[in-house]
């Protein structure tokens, strides 16, 4: 089976400065639930945007779902993007555009149909199913802008899964939510991954945002991979202390991880 994501010595510079990714090589098998963890500015979002074909590497090759996006013509690239569901870090939307929650979820099906044709009954049924799965049925006809931050994230996830992608890229999906909402969303991502077995790649700087069942962890600092592998071998107190630059103690319970700072000063006290 082809790997879902493959980086071969990828170097990527932002605005001509120091490398945001520095000779990064990684391979994610299809069906994995992977997480990229690292401090702010480590290059996590850049890695995700390179995987999405949004950023062109200065050197090296990125192959995602068997394709090098930079080598595809625009039609092939559009077809390839339909196979990838993306939640950007700041899922920006224009507040002046009045869409209902259902209409936002339907965006996931728009590129599947013929241009200019209405969504098919099958497409609408798929959206209804994902609205139900994410507990949004009662909110389907509400204005998306009126939802809470957590509900908006769920609507974006429903949109992504309605797209029926083979690869899902999530940038800080639980960021800026309160603790119960972070926890609920993280568990929901794990549940839906178990149901669909799509490859999921999550980027986060919060250890507790790693879903249970995470199969693969990549630790990134200064654009370089510091460690990668199974959570049990990578998410150790020693490795994470090195990664975040302060003494940390890591706890694990039921596949979920958390860390607290054990030294004096510096950092925000958790990861």
């Amino acid at each position: 089976m082809n790997p879902a994501v493959q980086f071969e010595r990828v170097t990527l510079r932002r605005h001509g400065g120091r490398p945001a990714l520095d000779a990064v090589s990684l391979t994610l098998p299809a069906g994995s639930l992977a997480a990229v963890l690292g401090p702010n500015g480590a290059g996590k979002s850049t890695l995700l945007r390179a995987a999405n074909g949004e950023l062109r590497p200065a050197s090296g090759t990125v192959r995602v779902l068997g394709e090098d996006a930079q080598a595809l013509d625009w039609r092939a690239a559009a077809r390839w993007r339909r196979r990838i569901g993306v939640m950007p870090q700041f899922a920006d939307h224009a507040p002046a555009v009045p869409l209902t929650v259902r209409e936002v979820v339907e965006i996931g099906r728009v590129a599947h149909g013929r241009r200019g044709a209405s969504l098919s009954a099958d497409d609408r049924a798929i959206c209804t199913r994902w609205l139900e799965r994410f507990g949004l049925s009662a909110l389907a006809e509400r204005s998306f802008a009126a939802l809470s931050g957590g509900e908006q994230r769920k609507a974006h996830l429903a949109r992504i899964f309605a797209q029926e992608p083979e690869l899902i890229l999530l940038d800080e999906p639980a960021g800026h939510l309160d603790l119960p909402a972070q926890d609920a969303l993280t568990r929901l991502i794990a549940e839906v991954w178990r149901e669909t077995r799509a490859t999921v790649l999550i980027v986060t700087h919060e250890l507790r945002h790693l879903p249970p069942d995470t199969t693969h962890v990549i630790l990134l600092a200064d654009g370089k991979i510091v460690a990668e592998g199974a959570p049990r071998t990578t998410l150790t107190s020693a490795t994470l202390s090195r990664l975040f630059g302060e003494p940390l103690e890591v706890f694990e319970r039921g596949g979920r991880y958390a860390a607290v700072a054990t030294g004096e000063g510096g950092g925000d006290g958790h990861a």
Binding site: N52, W74, A78, R79, W80, R81, R82, I84, G85, V86, P88, A91, D92, H93, A94, V97, L99, E103, V104, E106, I107, G108, V110, A111, G113, R115, G116, S118, L119, H156, R159, Q163
Partner: peptide
């Protein structure tokens, strides 16, 4: 009227519409 769904998607978020495979 004809391209309503595409226009909705792009006006909602150009980044999201692009990532879904729309031009």
């Amino acid at each position: 009227a004809v391209f309503l769904k595409e226009i909705k998607a792009v006006l909602f978020s150009r980044a999201v519409a692009w990532s879904c495979g729309l031009p």
